[in-house]
Amino acid sequence: MIDPSWIAGLGVILFGIGLLGAFSRSNGIIVLMCIEVMLNAANLNFVAGAAHYGDVNGWVFTAIAIAIAAAEVAIGLAIFLSLYSTQETISLDEASTLKN
């Protein structure tokens, strides 16, 4: 069996990739995908922990997190759709009307 610390390391790497992507990319869809990657990094840790400690809670949390992620993506995509229909862009750099 793989040592859980390796899996935790993989989770950290995945999370870092996701975070970096969310910071650096301007395409909204890509940012959403990066957020998914971060969520899955956390899920990976849950699953690993569940397998290691033989505790079912980890899997339950993962299932819930996946469901929430799906809902979040649905909302995110809806926001970008309406953003596109009003602004004709999904670039986060151009969607900056909140600036004074």
Binding site: F23, S96, L98, K99, N100
Partner: peptide, 13 residues
């Protein structure tokens, strides 16, 4: 308000 950038990436940061 001066220090707000309006950029989503900054908010995430």
């Amino acid at each position: 308000r001066r220090i707000t950038t309006g950029s989503a990436r900054d908010y995430i940061l």
